[in-house]
Design a protein around this nucleic acid. Structure first.
Lengths: 152, 152
DNA sequence: GCGGAATAGTTGAATATTCATCTGTTGTTC
DNA sequence: GAACAACAGATGAATATTCAACTATTCCGC
């Protein structure tokens, strides 16, 4: 490694602001969801399933959508099964495959919780930014997401 | 809860872009650090200690600086002690207190690893953004950080 | 200077995540 | 259609994180 290009003051401030903001925000949202017996990971699964046709997704697709390993998802779904939020169903087309399916109780849960969670996202993030800032943020992040996805 | 104010399409895109970007980015940086036997959490501790006078910090200050619980930090420092990266020392002023202190090995480790990590931060984040975007990002996030810190 | 509240930090059990490995398919090539 | 690589997912052990006590000090009001 030659002489490293250290971060400038401004770059460092931006990078550290991002890290701090994210940690604080996720911690807060997770804490708020805990009042409803959900973790932020539970919630993310519920959202993905609730938005999918048949309220179901293949395990691998769900793992990709939530950006986590198949193993982790498998454990996560097992826990959510225990809580009655989802069930597993065999995939008829591909006998290796499994669907994670939103249960009725899972559906009722997300219907009840979503308004509170969205309020939290607004209160602690969206409503603290202008429309322009949100637009800029998406513009800035889209290429980074694409870059990082290409590396996987 | 009255009629919830759902997120607009644009708000949702920005919010989800943030979540996806962060997960992918941290996962990638963590993976790169693993080649040097460090987790991203180890690294963050090492940076904080290396920048502090006497290469040491009180446990509580370090917990605040890295935004984690005292319990979690305590376990983390124990693991890093086992790896030889840090040591604990009693605080002479306050007999309840403990310092986490960077060991010589910890110092050598961060000196060696930092250039690689910074290169990663550049490659996957900083260099994909313009100076204006970085500036905007810091401007946008500073008030959110302040807001969230006030809630703790 | 006494007594209770707050602070600093640790501990161990419960829970969650990672990592390597394993079992069945499915797809491909000859 | 047999052989073998790739894929989908699950499993269990190792590691990490959370949560609820717990100990030992220090602070504060009287």
């Amino acid at each position: 490694m030659g002489t490293p290009r250290w971060l400038s003051q401004a770059e460092q401030r931006a990078w550290r602001a991002h890290l701090a903001m994210h940690k604080l925000l996720l911690h807060r949202l997770d804490r708020e969801l805990h009042e409803f017996g959900l973790s932020i990971n539970d919630y993310e699964i519920l959202v993905n399933l609730s938005e999918s046709p048949g309220r179901r997704m293949r395990m691998s697709d769900l793992a990709d959508a939530t950006i986590q390993s198949r193993s982790r998802l498998s454990h996560q779904i097992s826990r959510m099964e225990d809580k009655g939020l989802v069930t597993r169903e065999d995939c008829p087309d591909d006998r290796r495959g499994t669907f994670a399916v939103l249960s009725d109780q899972g559906w009722e849960t997300i219907k009840q919780v979503a308004p509170h969670h969205v309020a939290g996202v607004r209160q602690h993030f969206v409503d603290l930014l202008t429309d322009d800032q949100l637009e800029a943020l998406e513009q800035a992040y889209a290429p980074i997401v694409a870059h990082l996805k290409s590396l996987r």
